[in-house]
Design a protein around this nucleic acid. Structure first.
Lengths: 223, 223
DNA sequence: GCAGAATTCAAACAATCGTTTGAAACTGTC
DNA sequence: GACAGTTTCAAACGATTGTTTGAATTCTGC
């Protein structure tokens, strides 16, 4: 059975990490918020880094399993035929937004995750790479099959841009206040907004780099 | 005259901050890389926070002046007529990418900046807000004039998404390795790729939230 | 209700952080 | 070349960090 202290620490850490960052959050802050003793972190997790890894793994493993399950369902229904790009985007980002929409904890975690993609810290990047390896391989394959005419390099960039937009969509309520007053309390609306932006970007005409190869049609659609 | 030590510290700090983050970079690392004494930072800047602020202000003030100048030029040429959305996007993000393209120092700074939008640290957000206030006001006004039919809230979100994509485009060479081997050495190609993605996203049909108000046309274009 | 394992606790650990100090070295001026 | 002002330097400051320790406490199976 999961120790009570252990999960209280995980919850407290999740909340504090998103507020103060990885280095800015101290073990004393975490254990105080969790009503636990300072030594409890090292007892239950071994080290601060291991705790942080546990915070991510607790939800990320499940999240990526959901993404793969969503893709499985689509591919089974398609019976070998290529999927529509829109379906793939919706399944990947839809699962993500849905997790953020489902609960306050999910939202906290997604904000944390959004910030962490650009985290310089080496140990974070290494276990993120491990955690994402399978999901990325599956989705890349599905996209390449769905869009055989789009150069793979181009698509990787676009997927990267999409993840950037997603990251800001979730984590960015703070940075967004720069732009003006905004309502970020409705996950359904956020999902609709983000999805239509992403599909628009994904379907945009290929940049001139590639268009040179197909000079005739003046604006070739990517999709 | 700018002290030699002072600018050596700024350069070293810029490089180290992008590698190790704000908290992960220590004054001892910075002064060692700058071949300066540890106390030099506090002598020339007053504190670590003031140094970080100086690192950002040195390039950010100039960058935002360029953005405003670019918008001024467009508006002068248009003689009171609304600009095309594409022109506005290109002038804002074009100036940004161009700075990254111009030099290795520019690229380093842009990666640092990209990471900092999601920085939790309070003092960073406060001087970023100050530094961006004028630029944001000008570009928001230009966009609202160019797209009177797009709800302002919707546009703010899209601008936010665009900044997310930009952030990843610049800072994300690291996270991008997750997705597969990529060539990020050609700023021209990056500019073309990003711009076509952004315009695609900006021009995407409005999400259903707004579309309900205009039920008849099944896919209303935002632009 | 007792032995043994698991957990909690207060206290201290060494290391590292940003900052301060006061003397030394350098700079340009008369 | 002596002086005042600026800059550099080695050394130390108190505070805070993650981690460890060993005893006290609680839980578990018999």
């Amino acid at each position: 059975m999961e120790s009570d202290t252990r999960s209280r620490i995980l919850d407290a850490a999740e909340n504090l990490l998103v507020q103060h960052g990885l280095d800015g959050t101290t073990l004393r802050m975490i254990t105080a918020a969790a009503h636990a003793n300072l030594a409890a972190v090292n007892y239950h997790f071994g080290s601060k880094e291991a705790l942080i890894e546990a915070v991510f793994r607790r939800r990320l493993t499940w999240l990526n399993e959901q993404r793969i399950a969503a893709l499985d369902a689509l591919e089974t229904a398609a019976k070998g035929a290529p999927l529509k790009p829109r379906q793939i985007v919706e399944s990947y980002f839809g699962v993500t937004i849905r997790m953020a929409a489902a609960s306050a904890e999910g939202r906290t975690f997604m904000r944390l995750l959004g910030r962490t993609y650009t985290e310089p810290s080496e140990f974070v990047r290494s276990f993120l790479a491990e955690e994402y390896a399978e999901v990325i391989a599956r989705y890349k394959a599905a996209f390449f099959k769905a869009l055989p005419d789009v150069p793979q390099e181009e698509f990787i960039w676009r997927f990267h841009f999409m993840m950037g937009a997603l990251s800001y969509a979730i984590s960015g309520a703070d940075a967004l206040r720069l732009l003006g007053p905004i309502d970020d309390t409705d996950p359904e609306a956020l999902y609709a907004r983000l999805m239509s932006f992403l599909i628009g970007g994904l379907r945009a005409p290929l940049p001139e780099i590639h268009a040179q190869a197909v000079r005739k049609p003046r604006a070739k659609r990517a999709v």
